[in-house]
Amino acid sequence: MSILTGVLVLAGALLALAGSVGLLRLKSFYERVHPPTMGSTLGTGLILIACIVHFSGIEGRLVLHHLLIGVFMTVTTPVTYMMLVRAALHRDAAEGRDLLALREQRPTAVEAPPQG
Protein backbone atom coordinates (compact mmCIF):
# COMPACT_ATOMS: atom_id res chain seq x y z
CA MET A 1 0.00 0.00 0.00
CA SER A 2 2.91 2.35 0.69
CA ILE A 3 4.35 1.76 -2.76
CA LEU A 4 0.99 2.50 -4.41
CA THR A 5 0.64 5.68 -2.35
CA GLY A 6 4.15 6.78 -3.27
CA VAL A 7 3.61 6.14 -6.98
CA LEU A 8 0.32 8.06 -6.98
CA VAL A 9 1.82 11.04 -5.12
CA LEU A 10 4.82 11.10 -7.46
CA ALA A 11 2.61 10.93 -10.56
CA GLY A 12 0.40 13.73 -9.22
CA ALA A 13 3.41 15.89 -8.42
CA LEU A 14 4.86 15.32 -11.90
CA LEU A 15 1.58 16.36 -13.53
CA ALA A 16 1.48 19.52 -11.42
CA LEU A 17 5.12 20.21 -12.37
CA ALA A 18 4.31 19.72 -16.06
CA GLY A 19 1.51 22.26 -15.76
CA SER A 20 3.86 24.75 -14.12
CA VAL A 21 6.49 24.27 -16.82
CA GLY A 22 3.81 24.80 -19.48
CA LEU A 23 2.86 28.05 -17.78
CA LEU A 24 6.44 29.27 -17.97
CA ARG A 25 7.26 28.12 -21.50
CA LEU A 26 4.23 29.11 -23.54
CA LYS A 27 4.01 32.61 -25.00
CA SER A 28 0.44 33.92 -25.18
CA PHE A 29 -2.19 34.05 -22.46
CA TYR A 30 -4.46 31.66 -24.35
CA GLU A 31 -1.70 29.07 -24.60
CA ARG A 32 -0.55 29.58 -21.01
CA VAL A 33 -3.91 29.13 -19.31
CA HIS A 34 -4.46 25.47 -20.30
CA PRO A 35 -1.48 23.51 -18.86
CA PRO A 36 -1.82 24.66 -15.22
CA THR A 37 -5.52 23.89 -15.32
CA MET A 38 -4.95 20.34 -16.48
CA GLY A 39 -1.95 19.85 -14.21
CA SER A 40 -3.78 21.00 -11.13
CA THR A 41 -6.92 18.97 -11.84
CA LEU A 42 -5.21 15.70 -12.74
CA GLY A 43 -2.37 16.12 -10.25
CA THR A 44 -4.75 16.90 -7.40
CA GLY A 45 -6.88 13.92 -8.34
CA LEU A 46 -3.95 11.51 -8.15
CA ILE A 47 -2.74 12.96 -4.86
CA LEU A 48 -6.24 12.69 -3.39
CA ILE A 49 -6.49 9.05 -4.49
CA ALA A 50 -3.13 8.49 -2.76
CA CYS A 51 -4.55 10.09 0.41
CA ILE A 52 -7.61 7.85 0.27
CA VAL A 53 -5.46 4.73 -0.17
CA HIS A 54 -3.03 5.75 2.60
CA PHE A 55 -5.56 6.76 5.24
CA SER A 56 -7.87 3.85 4.44
CA GLY A 57 -4.95 1.52 5.10
CA ILE A 58 -4.04 3.24 8.37
CA GLU A 59 -7.59 3.38 9.75
CA GLY A 60 -8.64 -0.06 8.48
CA ARG A 61 -11.81 1.33 6.88
CA LEU A 62 -12.65 3.16 3.69
CA VAL A 63 -11.98 6.90 4.12
CA LEU A 64 -13.90 8.95 1.57
CA HIS A 65 -14.07 12.48 2.99
CA HIS A 66 -11.12 13.43 0.76
CA LEU A 67 -13.49 13.12 -2.18
CA LEU A 68 -15.04 16.46 -1.18
CA ILE A 69 -11.76 18.19 -2.01
CA GLY A 70 -11.67 16.39 -5.35
CA VAL A 71 -15.24 17.38 -6.19
CA PHE A 72 -14.54 21.00 -5.29
CA MET A 73 -11.36 21.10 -7.41
CA THR A 74 -13.04 19.35 -10.35
CA VAL A 75 -15.91 21.83 -10.36
CA THR A 76 -14.05 25.09 -9.68
CA THR A 77 -10.93 24.70 -11.85
CA PRO A 78 -12.67 24.44 -15.25
CA VAL A 79 -15.12 27.19 -14.32
CA THR A 80 -12.23 29.51 -13.43
CA TYR A 81 -10.49 28.56 -16.68
CA MET A 82 -13.56 29.45 -18.75
CA MET A 83 -14.10 32.74 -16.92
CA LEU A 84 -10.48 33.82 -17.45
CA VAL A 85 -10.57 33.00 -21.17
CA ARG A 86 -13.91 34.73 -21.69
CA ALA A 87 -12.66 37.85 -19.89
CA ALA A 88 -9.54 37.88 -22.08
CA LEU A 89 -11.62 37.42 -25.24
CA HIS A 90 -13.91 40.26 -24.18
CA ARG A 91 -10.89 42.48 -23.47
CA ASP A 92 -9.28 41.67 -26.81
CA ALA A 93 -12.52 42.30 -28.70
CA ALA A 94 -12.97 45.64 -26.92
CA GLU A 95 -9.44 46.67 -27.89
CA GLY A 96 -10.04 45.63 -31.50
CA ARG A 97 -7.48 42.83 -31.53
CA ASP A 98 -7.86 40.08 -34.09
CA LEU A 99 -6.77 36.83 -32.46
CA LEU A 100 -5.93 35.08 -35.72
CA ALA A 101 -3.79 38.00 -36.87
CA LEU A 102 -1.95 38.04 -33.54
CA ARG A 103 -1.23 34.33 -33.84
CA GLU A 104 0.08 34.69 -37.41
CA GLN A 105 2.43 37.56 -36.46
CA ARG A 106 4.21 35.56 -33.80
CA PRO A 107 7.15 33.66 -35.33
CA THR A 108 7.41 29.99 -34.48
CA ALA A 109 10.61 28.17 -33.64
CA VAL A 110 10.79 26.68 -37.16
CA GLU A 111 10.49 29.95 -39.04
CA ALA A 112 13.53 32.12 -39.62
CA PRO A 113 13.30 35.79 -38.58
CA PRO A 114 12.69 38.21 -41.46
CA GLN A 115 15.80 39.45 -43.22
CA GLY A 116 15.95 43.21 -43.34
Rank of each mutant, 00 (worst) to 15 (best):
M1P: 14
L4D: 08
L4Y: 10
T5W: 10
L8W: 08
V9I: 12
V9Q: 07
V9D: 05
L10G: 13
L10S: 13
L10D: 05
G12Y: 07
G12W: 04
A13H: 10
A13I: 11
L14W: 11
L14F: 15
L15I: 14
L15S: 15
A18T: 15
A18E: 13
S20G: 14
V21I: 08
G22L: 00
L24D: 07
R25Q: 06
S28M: 07
F29S: 02
F29A: 03
Y30E: 04
R32G: 00
G39N: 10
L42A: 09
G43H: 05
G45L: 14
I47H: 03
I47P: 04
L48K: 08
I49P: 03
I49T: 14
C51D: 01
V53C: 05
H54R: 08
F55L: 08
G57D: 13
E59W: 08
L62K: 15
L62F: 15
L62C: 14
L64R: 06
H65I: 04
H66T: 08
H66V: 13
I69S: 13
G70F: 10
G70V: 08
V71T: 14
F72T: 02
F72V: 06
M73P: 01
T74P: 02
T74D: 08
T76P: 09
T77Q: 00
T77N: 05
V79G: 02
V79R: 06
Y81N: 12
V85Y: 03
R86N: 13
R86Y: 14
A87K: 06
A88R: 01
L89R: 11
R91I: 01
R91C: 02
R91H: 10
D92A: 04
D92Y: 02
A93I: 03
A93Q: 09
E95H: 03
E95C: 00
R97A: 08
R97C: 06
R97W: 06
L99T: 09
L99H: 01
L99F: 02
L100S: 08
R103M: 04
R103P: 05
E104L: 13
P107S: 01
T108F: 08
T108W: 03
T108V: 08
T108K: 04
A109L: 03
V110D: 01
V110S: 00
V110P: 00
E111C: 02
A112K: 12
P113C: 00
Q115P: 06
G116M: 02
